[in-house]
Simulated scan of single mutants.
Amino acid sequence: MTMPPPTVGSELPAFTVTVSARTMCDWALYLRDPNPIHLDPDFVRARGLGDRVINQGPANLAYIINMLAGAFPGARIASLESRFVDNAYDGDRLTAGGRVVETDGRQAICDVWLTADGDRPIIQGRAVILPPP
């Protein structure tokens, strides 16, 4: 089944996940990132960064990529620009979303974002999507 071509203004289906300290431990292994801000709430607290461990940036970006893969099955992400605007913490419910802002029949340009608990921006960006080969 093929999807209809995207139309300017259409919202992309959201991808939602709740992050946990346990998954941050897994991500730390996968990414070879032993930074204690992802593993030790006392370290986070001592640095004045809050009371909960902080999710890895690459994991946050992966949630946007998962959202794009679901919205455009078989398509290719030609580019993805992102700006990290806040941290995601243990227990945050993250939602990756997007909106088509331009299309010319051969590509779709989408604003993309990741928010925590519905309204706190974590990542803002733009993706260029090419149709499946």
Rank of each mutant, 00 (worst) to 15 (best):
residue 94 L to T: 01
residue 42 D to E: 15
residue 24 M to C: 11
residue 61 L to Y: 08
residue 118 G to Q: 12
residue 61 L to F: 08
residue 27 W to C: 04
residue 52 R to W: 07
residue 117 D to Q: 15
residue 47 R to Y: 06
residue 95 T to A: 12
residue 35 N to D: 13
residue 66 N to R: 14
residue 3 M to N: 04
residue 70 G to V: 08
residue 29 L to P: 01
residue 97 G to V: 04
residue 63 Y to K: 00
residue 18 T to K: 08
residue 44 V to Q: 04
residue 66 N to Y: 09
residue 20 S to V: 04
residue 97 G to S: 14
residue 6 P to E: 03
residue 68 L to W: 01
residue 73 P to Q: 12
residue 100 V to G: 00
residue 18 T to Y: 06
residue 37 I to K: 11
residue 88 A to N: 01
residue 18 T to S: 04
residue 99 R to M: 07
residue 79 S to G: 12
residue 73 P to W: 04
residue 72 F to Q: 01
residue 20 S to P: 03
residue 102 E to F: 13
residue 126 R to T: 14
residue 108 A to F: 00
residue 72 F to I: 03
residue 30 Y to I: 14
residue 10 S to E: 11
residue 55 N to T: 13
residue 67 M to P: 01
residue 107 Q to A: 15
residue 102 E to W: 15
residue 97 G to D: 07
residue 66 N to S: 14
residue 30 Y to S: 13
residue 64 I to W: 01
residue 53 V to N: 07
residue 124 Q to M: 13
residue 22 R to P: 00
residue 128 V to N: 07
residue 123 I to G: 04
residue 34 P to G: 06
residue 81 E to W: 06
residue 97 G to A: 10
residue 69 A to G: 10
residue 108 A to I: 05
residue 3 M to F: 08
residue 60 N to T: 00
residue 49 L to H: 04
residue 114 L to H: 04
residue 20 S to H: 01
residue 85 V to D: 10
residue 69 A to K: 14
residue 21 A to F: 03
residue 40 D to L: 09
residue 53 V to Q: 04
residue 75 A to H: 11
residue 26 D to G: 03
residue 7 T to S: 10
residue 117 D to S: 14
residue 25 C to K: 10
residue 97 G to N: 06
residue 106 R to F: 04
residue 75 A to N: 11
residue 76 R to V: 13
residue 89 Y to N: 07
